[in-house]
């Protein structure tokens, strides 16, 4: 444990690998997160037009309901909150440090870029059928070819947009 109350990423990563093994062993569930966004979107849309949702092929494939993964994703927020509170690193922050150093304090630009980034990211991740958890961690742990290829593409795409966004600015 260092001065910031955090653990080495090697140690916490390895421990999370043990958690993943336990999950597969005892519950038969592999990690994943993005399907829960589909289920949530479906649950929200269902409130407005239930008949339409019932007929959409994607919501027939991914039935909008609270399931293991939805609770898993919800749990991540709780676990992070507990860890942040107990190690004194909880901080209400609307602008990340790196962003502020490059683009300043206004919250508008960060909100717009994050929102648009979110739309693009989720569209892509559903097309790829998995996120850095589902393809990256669970897929590669199973030595799935799709996991290795997806993880490489995630980083290539991310390097392109992050470097374009920060192009011309001071390093860090």
């Amino acid at each position: 444990m260092n001065k910031e109350g955090s653990w080495s990423p090697y140690f916490s990563g390895a421990l999370s690998g043990v958690v993943a093994i336990g999950s597969v062993w005892f519950v038969g569930k592999y990690f994943g997160a993005s399907t829960s966004f589909v289920k949530s979107a479906g649950l929200i849309e269902k409130m407005f037009s239930p008949e339409r949702i019932a007929q959409m092929p994607y919501f027939i494939k991914e039935i909008p309901a609270i399931d293991w993964q939805w609770m898993f994703v919800f749990g991540i927020a709780i676990g992070a909150f507990v860890a942040a509170m107990t190690s004194g690193t909880f901080q209400i922050k609307a602008i990340p440090d790196m962003w502020e150093a490059r683009f300043g304090k206004p919250t508008g630009p960060r909100a717009v870029v994050a929102f648009i980034g979110g739309i693009i990211a989720m569209f892509g991740v559903r097309l790829a059928d998995g996120c850095p958890s589902g393809h990256g961690l669970a897929g590669v742990s199973q030595l799935a070819v799709s996991g290795f290829v997806a993880l490489a593409c995630f980083f290539i795409g991310g390097m392109i947009s992050a470097n374009l966004l920060y192009k011309g600015g001071a390093k860090k």
């Binding site: 990690f31 997160a33 993005s34 829960s36 966004f37 994703v73 919800f74 991540i76 927020a77 709780i78 676990g79 992070a80 909150f81 860890a83 942040a84 690193t89 909880f90 901080q91 209400i92 922050k93 609307a94 602008i95 990340p96 919250t107 960060r110 909100a111 870029v113 994050a114 648009i116 980034g117 979110g118 739309i119 693009i120 990211a121 989720m122 569209f123 892509g124 991740v125 559903r126 097309l127 790829a128 059928d129 996120c131 850095p132 958890s133 290829v149 997806a150 993880l151 490489a152 593409c153 995630f154 290539i156 795409g157 991310g158 390097m159 392109i160 947009s161 992050a162 470097n163 966004l165």
Partner: peptide, 30 residues
């Protein structure tokens, strides 16, 4: 194609689907 599109969005957002909830949990309201 999906992986590259996700990557581009991820580079803009700075969180992935799982970590976005976690970031919120540690107070990163963006």
């Amino acid at each position: 194609v999906g992986g590259l599109i996700f990557g581009i969005g991820w580079g803009l957002l700075g969180y992935c689907p799982g970590t976005s909830l976690g970031a919120l949990g540690e107070g990163r309201v963006d």
